[in-house]
Design a protein around this nucleic acid. Sequence first.
DNA 1: GAGCAAAGTGAACACGTTTTCAAAACGTGT
DNA 2: ACACGTTTTGAAAACGTGTTCACTTTGCTC
Lengths: 370, 370
Amino acid sequence: MDGFAGVMDEHDYNRDWKVLSLSDEAEARRSRATAEMVAKLANVSRVAVSRAFNPEASLRADKRARILSVARELNYTPDRAARALVTRRSHLIGMIVPDVFSPWESQEVDALTSALQAEGFATLLFKTRTDMSMDERLLTYMRGFNPDSVIAFTENVRPEVLSQFLDSCVPIYINYLLEDGGAVEAEAPTDVLYDRLDVNQWQGMDQAVALLAGYGCRRIAYISGKKNSLAEFARYRTLQRLMARRKLPAPTVVQGDFSYRQGYAATIDLFRLHGGADAIFAANDESAFGALDALRHELGLGVPDAVRVVGFDDIVQSGWKSYDLTTVRIDVHERVSALVRLILRRLSAPDAPTMSEQVGTKLVVRGTVG
Amino acid sequence: MDGFAGVMDEHDYNRDWKVLSLSDEAEARRSRATAEMVAKLANVSRVAVSRAFNPEASLRADKRARILSVARELNYTPDRAARALVTRRSHLIGMIVPDVFSPWESQEVDALTSALQAEGFATLLFKTRTDMSMDERLLTYMRGFNPDSVIAFTENVRPEVLSQFLDSCVPIYINYLLEDGGAVEAEAPTDVLYDRLDVNQWQGMDQAVALLAGYGCRRIAYISGKKNSLAEFARYRTLQRLMARRKLPAPTVVQGDFSYRQGYAATIDLFRLHGGADAIFAANDESAFGALDALRHELGLGVPDAVRVVGFDDIVQSGWKSYDLTTVRIDVHERVSALVRLILRRLSAPDAPTMSEQVGTKLVVRGTVG
DNA sequence: GAGCAAAGTGAACACGTTTTCAAAACGTGT
DNA sequence: ACACGTTTTGAAAACGTGTTCACTTTGCTC
């Protein structure tokens, strides 16, 4: 035995190789089929298989049918990672979301995912911390996955951080808000180029203010959203202008952060420290819920008899009987399809000038006003 | 000119090549940096760059530092698509979710995304239709993205459909539920091999039943979850056995589907058609909200005075003052870390025998019982 | 049936990584 | 100076696909 060590070694090497190849084959069976295998089984070249899966490529109809049938049998699908490598399209849409469990955000993520899925894209979800420095790391982390486009729900991302992505040709969409049909927020950074989805909140908020004024409300308070949020600021400015137009006194502002808890606390403050109000306008529905619960369960004030409440967004919970909230609706479906339209257009024409879409708002009247 | 056609051709070819290279360079500036560029700029081979980004690879410390600094300057990150092609790890975790905006699901997606992100994975989100045939298409669609693992929130996926994925070596985790500390659901398909996360709901539900019994409730109704849901079935069976143990009459069952709307409707039916109850146990919190609103706002029954209500999950909204729901809590943090542990273990040892983790439940007492 | 445009075909290359493997550099003890 | 074990190194080969470019076939018109 030891005398034939050299030969044995070689033999063992071969055996090892064979074993390796066997285990490779065993692995192949449980692993995904490749275009090569489909090609072999259908008696065509590998290129033909590729073409069979790209409808615009030219290939004889019967050949394509045969390939597709073999592919189906083998449960073959082109590997998107490999495909992305050459086409430079990952078909991944990144979403940066602070809190998925926040009703509004989850609703939006849900609708967007449906719409994008229908167009052949998949949602790549990332959570952000409120911490800023963290965000930069998150962005480069995310970039490693090569998303075709990024939708940022965070309002606090600094433009210079975002511009890293524009260098790498990834369009970013943020939720900007229009004050009225005309003027875009001056705060929107102009040196960075990206497409925007604007929400025209003038009409819906105007209806809300008109309704409140019609009930004789004059002391209208505003529960603000998170600090430094552009959405927040735009809503506040719009409310201010709408009330001035109707010769109503300027709104009392109490600080919120879009959360139930802060909406609750702000309302307590409003009535204990700042003289109260006969109507409350909340920056979003969730903080309106907080306001409602504070009024009813802690301050003992009836809604809508003593105080009237209006929210913003019209999330599903606003329709629940316990809240039954009158609110300014942003139509999610309309909003999402505009966003998808924007993304698709940008992907098909990366060098086109900046685009924007606009969606409207309207008041949904329920029980918290009268 | 025409005399030198051959030469010109070659020259043109060269020029073309140069132009191409120029436009390539221009594109390169706006496109992502590659390992090649980093290598050139740092005077090392491309392999060294690869090694610099894989901590366990051996590389001289100063060399690694220099590479990393150049990489930072160029804003370079290894392309995960290319990396996935050879390592066979996409670092993508697929999640199949019916409704992201459902509070419980969104909460779970949120927590999972955080935990996975911390481990270097990203969440790939897919929405499913209730339609079955659709699901199969969804699964092959999803498989194209090569997720390392799949977490399915759907309860209705047929095992034979899922097994396609096991062929391609992708572990799947579904939310199974244990009736008590011991026996696993018999309905769990045994021919298909996958890891499970079990929820031991015995303890929490026992506390709930004890509390209700302590208040003298005997006519306990149960609002069920979606049909064919294993989670639903396990909860029902557990409730049945717990009540029998305490010599309570069997619960009246009204059909729900985990939704607010159906919880509302089922409660109306319960009192208008099926003789009512002095306590309601809902299959999840959201339908408990529906029950509460039906009792208070349509049936005019006080909670907890006339009827006591218990939910299941402890989603954030259960803490809101308008509902203030007593409920059986599944600790999301504990649950998610168990799930992540399961996934990581499976990925590091693909051929290990089936594993399972278990998390407990406990009652959270709030205002809807007393 | 010749002529010709259009459509179909496949070899070779590219995409950006990791992994293997043999060679080179390095340090340490005699 | 030598031998020897350890770490470091880079060329070449994957990974699974799309795309280009000449080449071949098909279909149509006169």
